[in-house]
Amino acid sequence: MADDFRASLLAQLIARIAALQATGDQYYPAGLFPSLRWKKALGYRRLDTNGFFTSLIVFTLREMRAHLPAASQVVVDDIATKALAIYPLYQSKSGQATYNFYPPRPKQHFPHGYLLHRTRHFAAPDDLDSTSLAYLSNPRSDAENRWLKAKLQAHANTVKGWAATGPRAFRRKKVYSAWFGERMPIDMDASTLSNGMLWAVRTGLPLNEFDEDSLAFINWTIASGEYRRRPLDVSAYYATAPLIAYHVGRLLAEAELPQLAEARATLRRDLPQLLATAPAFMDKILLASTLLRLGEQPTPLLDPAWSLAELEQRSRGLYFCIAPLLNYYPQTRWLARWRLSQIDWECPAHSLALVAEYVALGGR
Rank of each mutant, 00 (worst) to 15 (best):
L361F: 10
Q273Y: 09
W147R: 08
L252C: 03
D77A: 12
K284H: 00
A85C: 03
A309N: 14
Y27C: 06
H67L: 12
S141M: 11
T332M: 05
A239Q: 14
A164E: 15
A154Q: 15
R105W: 02
A239W: 04
P29F: 01
A85G: 09
L301P: 09
P104A: 11
E182H: 13
N208Q: 09
R168V: 15
H112C: 12
A216G: 05
F33E: 01
R171V: 05
Q273H: 11
H155E: 08
L292Q: 11
L271R: 05
A236C: 08
R333Q: 12
S141K: 04
P348M: 08
K151D: 06
K284M: 06
D25P: 04
S72K: 07
Q273W: 13
R364I: 08
S94A: 12
M184C: 11
V75P: 06
Y246Q: 14
Y28A: 04
L260A: 04
S315F: 01
Y28K: 01
D4L: 14
S92C: 10
G24P: 08
L128E: 09
P185E: 07
H247C: 13
Y87W: 14
E357P: 00
C321F: 13
V234T: 05
Y44I: 04
S8Y: 01
Q153K: 11
H112G: 10
M1V: 12
E209W: 01
S141H: 03
D3S: 12
D303L: 03
E209K: 10
F52M: 10
A22H: 03
P106D: 02
S289W: 00
R293K: 15
Q153A: 14
L89E: 06
G166A: 05
L61W: 03
H247D: 13
S55I: 14
S289G: 13
Y358R: 00
A265C: 08
Y329H: 15
D213P: 09
I57L: 13
Q273T: 15
V76I: 06
F59A: 08
Y87A: 06
V201K: 08
F320V: 13
R314T: 01
V201P: 02
L36A: 09
R16H: 13
V201G: 02
A66N: 11
F52R: 09
E312C: 11
A7L: 09
Q12W: 00
A323Q: 12
R118T: 10
Y328M: 13
S224G: 07
G295R: 12
P104T: 10
R364P: 10
L361K: 06
